[in-house]
Computed example of a mutant assay.
Amino acid sequence: MKVLQFTVPVPIDKSIVVQKDVLPYFYPHLHRHQEVQLTWIQQGEGTLVADNNMHTFRSNEIFWLGANQPHIFKSDPSYFLPRSRKKIIALVIFFNPEGALSAFFNLPEIKQLKNFVQQRQTGFKVPAILNTVISGQMLRISSSAGVEQLMHFVELLRLLSGCPDITPLASGNRKATVSDHDGIRIGNIYNYIMQHYDKAITLEDAASQVHMTPHAFCRFFKKHTLHTFVSFLNEVRINEACKKLTDGNYDNIATVAYTCGFNSITNFNRVFKTVTGKSPSQYLNSYFHNVETN
């Protein structure tokens, strides 16, 4: 995998690109592009990696990704099985505030929206309480054209700028650029960890994937992800554990722990609380309480 630099095709007569994806699985490569991306997952589940963090995604969730933010929507392994009949459906809106829309964003009346876009370079997940409103506005944009579409787009930004309790998808200060060479290495590491998180992975195993010594690998990985290798691996494992727990397809918590690469329930409970701030049972109670109240 490589951090591929995309150029989203923009028709001459449009400054906003609307794309409907119906595919066997999401595009499987870490990539970035100059355009801000708003993705409504209409059908599908998996893991979103954005910069140095990962998040579970499910149907009817909406994500904002900043311009040039490396990301990948990694579909669950079941989507890649030979006889899988699963598919993903997503509605995506792209726009480049520095491109054809730059003059628009420099209007004094749009200053508040411009500030919002600039302050959300590390992306965010739209709060669930606003999913219906934001998805409805995205549908209006996709079904309109010309001035009407632009007006719906401005309203979308206005609605998003009023989102309460926005939590960034990525932490820390994101580097403005990542070289292709470093991007290839980061992509290979991400891919290796996400495919083998359920097995014993050593530092030497990961370093060998990018032909580096363990010491050089540690420095490189911390520089580009703001994580140690162990903390990132633990986040991948706990992220997968959270998906399994909330899906309900498990016999008990211990089964989830062992299928996510942990060799003891004690270690799993400790790491789970470190990553999420809750014990597995507390996390489950909180999750289902939020589902019921929403």
Score class of each variant (00 low, 15 high):
residue 3 V to N: 03
residue 4 L to T: 12
residue 7 T to F: 04
residue 10 V to D: 00
residue 14 K to Q: 13
residue 15 S to H: 08
residue 18 V to L: 04
residue 18 V to A: 11
residue 19 Q to K: 14
residue 20 K to D: 06
residue 23 L to W: 03
residue 26 F to H: 14
residue 26 F to G: 11
residue 31 H to I: 05
residue 34 Q to R: 14
residue 44 G to Q: 08
residue 46 G to L: 05
residue 48 L to A: 02
residue 52 N to V: 01
residue 53 N to L: 03
residue 54 M to S: 10
residue 55 H to K: 06
residue 56 T to I: 13
residue 57 F to N: 06
residue 57 F to E: 06
residue 62 I to W: 05
residue 63 F to H: 09
residue 69 Q to S: 12
residue 73 F to N: 01
residue 78 S to G: 01
residue 79 Y to K: 08
residue 81 L to N: 01
residue 81 L to S: 11
residue 82 P to W: 08
residue 87 K to P: 00
residue 87 K to D: 08
residue 89 I to H: 10
residue 91 L to H: 03
residue 97 P to C: 05
residue 97 P to Y: 04
residue 98 E to Q: 11
residue 98 E to Y: 05
residue 99 G to M: 02
residue 101 L to M: 04
residue 102 S to V: 07
residue 104 F to M: 03
residue 111 K to Y: 06
residue 117 V to Y: 00
residue 118 Q to A: 13
residue 119 Q to R: 08
residue 120 R to N: 15
residue 123 G to L: 01
residue 125 K to Q: 14
residue 126 V to W: 04
residue 128 A to P: 06
residue 128 A to I: 13
residue 129 I to P: 00
residue 130 L to T: 07
residue 130 L to Y: 08
residue 136 G to V: 05
residue 138 M to H: 00
residue 139 L to A: 08
residue 143 S to E: 06
residue 150 L to E: 10
residue 151 M to A: 14
residue 158 R to H: 11
residue 160 L to H: 02
residue 165 D to R: 11
residue 166 I to Q: 07
residue 167 T to K: 14
residue 170 A to Q: 06
residue 170 A to V: 05
residue 175 K to R: 15
residue 176 A to I: 13
residue 178 V to P: 00
residue 178 V to W: 07
residue 179 S to E: 01
residue 183 G to N: 01
residue 189 I to G: 05
residue 191 N to R: 12
residue 193 I to T: 09
residue 194 M to N: 15
residue 195 Q to I: 13
residue 197 Y to I: 12
residue 197 Y to S: 12
residue 207 A to R: 06
residue 208 S to I: 12
residue 211 H to M: 13
residue 212 M to F: 03
residue 216 A to H: 11
residue 216 A to I: 05
residue 218 C to D: 15
residue 223 K to T: 14
residue 225 T to E: 04
residue 226 L to A: 11
residue 228 T to S: 10
residue 234 N to T: 04
residue 234 N to P: 01
residue 238 I to L: 02
residue 238 I to F: 01
residue 240 E to C: 14
residue 243 K to T: 13
residue 245 L to A: 07
residue 245 L to N: 01
residue 246 T to Q: 05
residue 246 T to G: 07
residue 249 N to A: 14
residue 254 A to K: 06
residue 264 S to E: 00
residue 264 S to T: 09
residue 265 I to H: 03
residue 268 F to Q: 04
residue 268 F to L: 05
residue 270 R to A: 10
residue 272 F to T: 09
residue 275 V to H: 06
residue 278 K to T: 06
residue 282 Q to F: 01
residue 282 Q to I: 01
residue 288 F to Q: 02
residue 292 E to A: 15
residue 293 T to K: 14
residue 293 T to V: 15
